[in-house]
Design a binder for these strands. Structure first.
Lengths: 328, 328
DNA sequence: CTGTTAGCGCATTCAT
DNA sequence: ATGAATGCGCTAACAG
């Protein structure tokens, strides 16, 4: 490994001069400067990031933790984060929270491998997040109810979104609305479930536990739920799935069994993932402004890095996107 | 920041003893050990990753560089990589190559921030990759024709895949097959184009430059190409799109203009991304074994990290997935 | 303008 | 079994 020492030697200067020249951070004559740069080039010198980070206790890097790197849901979010991070001349690393306590994400949180972190993951311990946030390591937390001094919260109004979704179904004349739930331990799911129940009550309808199905936020979960309905011989006229993945799973299951989505059964989802518009029939859903969230998250991170911690919590609305899965 | 020094002080031992106790890497009495561990816990001590990496010149981390973190295409690949990396007790960071020379990916390549790197990106300079590969920083390169001592190549047989795709169209009686091309500078695209031409020739058909459209591998590109065909008043009976994104763009464009895909025009894509099965009509395409590639890549990286560099180049086949976009 | 030097936090060798 | 001391590669304060 070629170090700055080698460069200095080759250029016939001291280490510090080499460092100054390389980083353009001190008074160096043009001539020496050129000599150092040339030496560095010839030697193919590249600074050791770890040494630099250790010394400066900065990494110029923002970490983005998502619950599963492979999930389709994060595509838009990442796009937003990526654009803004790049524009601010920071580096970005995406990290998965799969594995919980032993995950790479957990390590990053503890070991300060980045200057700041954006978290959009439910499978990461509360305490971990709370204790990781410091002045020199701000955290932007998306859609989780953890508060703290150096934690900046961005939330989507899941309650209101679910309320609107349910009301939409009600407005179309449905009186019996099933709910396919996401992960039980998820804040998102909880809020959506509350919104669902609240809309029911507000419209004088009773909440019926028999109409609740477990789906765990994955396509297979929605599929299983729908199959269960079919096997029970009773398919409700309307279904609110706590996310699109599950809604799509249900649509597939109904498709296989000849149940006509949009006619026999109305389905609404949540998220507006990319496939939503391609399934048959196209899925009516509550759009989460993920791209905007990504951009916003980076803006806030950058401000926090500059020492400016905003007080207010940010709450973004979800938007009803009507397609055809609830009928024409 | 609490360092190992603080822990040592609190436990009433020297720094080295604390280090031994913490890492279980030296002779320490059970009693001292417990004392140190307790002190660390109370102080919420977490080792500084940079210092450790600097000292040990290892990071225990594998980097995955993709051309665009937000791309839907990488989902399956990432899933494979993620699983295997986790199983091997390594950490994983995903990095985007957007930005080329100034990208975070380029920096990682030069600055050794990971122990090894898997690259699935076409927007990263050849020279950069070549010069970054060293014994202590092996690179697994997917689908790019760069060879080197510490570079391990995994390729998908794009030529053969394109050949098969084209032949499938020919077998269905088509005599005029358009090609919507990907990025011109991409190796994938080049190979697919060659496969397309070879299949044409092998079947006594002439290659017609008028039937080549530029698409750049994105949905909008395929959309534009199809619109162009329509505006020219001439839609070929069959189209081979160099990837699914473009095929889907074309399908959308045709849908808007009332051209019936599967009847008026046959379209085949490449990749088999998730949406392929959801578009209408479902897209016939050449499946790339991305999940398998991801798993394989990690296996090879791990072997390389252990000093075992395989000689042979690996070539994986693409598989024809027949759905309905080329007719029943 | 340039060189000397002191750490950043940690792992580890060599004494004790 | 434990501690003192060294250096990984780099930046920056200080001295010249």
């Amino acid at each position: 490994m070629v170090t700055i020492r080698d460069v200095a030697k080759k250029a016939g200067v001291s280490i510090s001069t080499a460092s100054y020249a390389l980083n353009d951070s001190g008074p160096v004559s043009q001539e020496t400067r050129q000599r150092v740069l040339k030496a560095a080039q010839e030697l193919k010198y590249h600074p050791n990031a770890n040494a630099r980070h250790l010394r400066s206790s900065k990494t110029n890097t923002i970490g983005l933790i998502v619950s599963d790197l492979a999930g389709p849901f994060f595509s838009e979010l990442i796009r937003g984060v990526q654009e803004k991070t790049l524009a601010a001349d920071y580096d970005l690393m995406a990290i998965s929270a799969i594995g919980g306590f032993d995950s790479t994400a957990a390590k990053f949180l503890k070991e300060r491998r980045t200057d700041a972190i954006i978290i959009f993951a439910h499978n990461l311990d509360d305490g971990l997040i709370k204790s990781a946030a410091r002045r020199d390591m701000p955290i932007v937390l998306i859609d989780r109810p953890i508060e703290g001094k150096y934690i900046i919260n961005i939330k989507v109004d899941n309650f209101e979104g679910a309320y609107k979704a349910t009301e939409y179904l009600i407005s179309r004349g449905h009186e019996e609305i099933a709910y396919i739930s996401g992960s039980e331990d998820s804040y998102d799911n909880e809020q959506r479930f509350e919104g669902y129940k609240a809309a029911l009550e507000a419209n004088g309808m009773k909440y019926n536990p028999d109409l609740i199905y477990r789906g765990n936020f994955v396509e297979a979960g929605g599929y299983a739920a729908a199959k269960l309905m079919i096997s029970k011989g009773y398919v409700p006229r309307a279904i609110f799935a706590a996310n699109d993945e599950m809604a799509i799973g249900a649509i597939n299951a109904f498709g296989e069994s000849g149940v006509k989505v949009g006619e026999d059964v109305a389905i609404i989802g949540f998220d507006d993932i990319r496939i939503a518009r391609y399934v048959v029939p196209p899925l009516t859903t509550m759009r989460q402004p993920t791209y905007e969230i990504g951009c916003l998250a980076v803006n806030l991170v950058l401000r926090a890095l500059a020492g400016d911690f905003p007080e207010s919590k940010i709450m973004l609305p979800a938007e009803l996107i009507i397609r055809r899965s609830c009928g024409e």
